[in-house]
Every structure is written in structure tokens, then in C-alpha cells.
Nucleic acid binder design. Structure first.
Lengths: 152, 152
DNA sequence: TTATAAAAAGACACACATATCTTTTTATAG
DNA sequence: CTATAAAAAGATATGTGTGTCTTTTTATAA
């Protein structure tokens, strides 16, 4: 569904937001460790979302990533638009170059319904709402560590 | 969402079904022309669905693709399972290696709802139901031809 | 002002999906 | 039996997403 770039982007932003609340400005290496993603690639992804203005960064000693106006909520949709492109929610589920109500593919109506509900979902969820779940230990940003007692 | 392999597979099968009703056994070149797909790659895709037993084929003069028991309905889900793999409907929307109700990612519950509705859609739609729409000119398998009168 | 720590940028590597081309196998028509 | 037509198979090519590595730029600490 969503590409790795988008997945790492969202998970990174959630982690950054949580750390910001603690007064920290994490770097991409710390971020990668905490969301279980490849370090270098995560740096590249953060360049993309930073250039797009979704998050801010500071170079140099003591630098890192942070939200300038953390009170403004950032929807997953805004992230997806940057990382996947605007066409993402407009493509035909059947692969047709042109497909709409006037000129539908055979699954157009049903597919549009599903697509809309996914659109509505990512439009409703925000980096802040996801961060809140994680902070309350109701969800995780990476797979849990394997403990000595865990069964494989 | 779905890969090109799956898209061409479904569109090919719908075309084959429609031609079968007319007593024809189309070859992959004819199929590719009529679903607007690359010829050689369509041949490869048809090898995959044929090996999986979703459709039958005959080599040699007068050969082509056909449904052995065209009365048995074939869901899009069965096609997707072959072309995308069984994991397709079980992957975390957030990219986590393990994600379930016990150990959810921050969008688990909402994402599962959307995923289920897509699953339900492809489980309900069949090659036959799509073919019926196309036969009744209620839908198309490829973009419509540009006519001289059409506006670009 | 110099050393250091961090992001940014650029070049490169790899895997996989997508696509093309050629050869082989198989069935039928004549 | 031979020529032909078709799918199957194999080899190769291309593109994009994913990932790594090195160098450059920038800010801070000392």
C-alpha cells in the first residue's frame, strides 16, 4: 500500500514529535534506531520531508529535527502527498489510464468507496494523534524487543 | 495498490472470459491489444496464472487461453493471492514486522477496517461479474480510443 | 579560531517489478 | 511428414524504490 519512504517518514515524524515534547531534538541516527529503519535511508527520507517543510532541522553540533510550530497538527495525508505524490488517491485500481464515473473500469464504484475510506482515515489521523497513542503505551513504532522469556 | 502483474492478470482473464462466451480462444497478443498492455509481459503474466491453474491454455495452431469450467466463478481474491502472494492482506499499514491487536501500530485498528473492506470487495467481485459489466457496455478494459471529435 | 557534531548532498549499489527478445516445445492444418 | 501457429521457457534489459557510502556544508563548543 504505502511505500517504505512513507512508512519511515511517518514513523520518524511521530518519534520526533514525542522527543520534542521532552525538549529533545533527535538526529537521524537516533531516529533510525528507535523506529527500526535503515540509518542512511532514513536520513534521505528526512531530507525529503524537511525540504517540503513538514518538519524543521538544524545542522551542526546540537542540531537535529524538530517541529517549529508543534501546536499545528500534521495529518498523515500531508505526509503521503509529499512522499507518494498527489496522484496517489486518484489512480484507477484497475490500472486504466483514464477511469472515472463517466468512463469506469469494471470495479470503479466499489474501489472508489474503499479508496475514500482510506483517504478519510489518513486525513483524520495526525502525527500528534499517533504520538499520543505511543506515549500512552497503546501502540508501538517498532516491533517489540525479543526478551529472554519470549517464545520464538 | 495492486501491481501491474495483477492488473494485467485480471484484465486478461476478463477478456478471455468474454471471448470464451463467443466461442473464441484468444492468444496473448490479441489479449494484450485489447486490454492495452505490453505484449511480451502479458504473455509472462498469463504463464503465471496458467501455471496456478486459474485458466487453461493450449499450445499450437488454434491454441490460446480458455476457462475449462467457465461455470465456476473466479474471485479477484484468488487472482491476487497468486500474483501478489498470500501476505498481501496481512501486512501492517505502518510497515511494522509484527503488528496485531495485541501489539498494534498506532493506526492498526483504523487500517484493519479499510483493509477488510478491500478484502471484502475483491472477495465479492469475480472475473464473471466484471465481464458482465464490460459485455453490457457499463465498463471498459482499456481507455477509450481517442476519436476525431474528442477534446484533449 | 579550531575541533567537533550534525544535516545536506551526491554518487553509487542492489533488489525487484516491469518489459523485451529469442529459442524451444507442442499442437494442428495441409 | 512438413509447415505453421501458438504457448512456454529462458535470457536479457530497463526503471524505480530502497539502501549505503563518502564528501560537503553548517553550526556549536571549547
Amino acid at each position: 500500500m504505502l511505500g517504505k519512504t512513507t512508512e519511515y517518514a511517518i514513523r520518524s515524524l511521530v518519534y520526533i514529535y514525542i522527543q520534542n515534547l521532552k525538549g529533545e531534538r533527535p538526529g537521524f541516527k537516533e531516529i533510525a534506531r528507535n523506529i527500526d529503519s535503515p540509518e542512511g535511508f532514513t536520513g534521505k527520507v528526512l531530507q525529503i520531508v524537511t525540504r517540503a517543510g513538514l518538519v524543521s532541522s538544524m545542522k551542526g553540533r546540537g542540531g537535529g529535527f524538530f517541529f517549529d510550530n508543534s501546536e499545528k497538527s500534521l495529518s498523515l495525508l500531508e505526509v503521503i502527498n509529499v512522499t507518494e505524490g498527489q496522484e496517489f488517491f486518484h489512480k484507477c485500481g484497475f490500472g486504466l489510464k483514464s477511469c472515472d464515473a463517466q468512463n469506469p473500469c469494471p470495479m470503479h464504484d466499489e474501489y472508489v468507496t474503499v479508496r475514500k475510506s482510506f483517504y478519510s482515515l489518513v486525513n483524520r489521523l495526525t502525527i500528534q494523534s499517533l504520538a499520543s497513542k505511543v506515549s500512552q503505551n497503546k501502540a508501538v513504532l517498532k516491533r517489540l524487543e525479543i526478551t529472554e522469556n519470549s517464545i520464538d
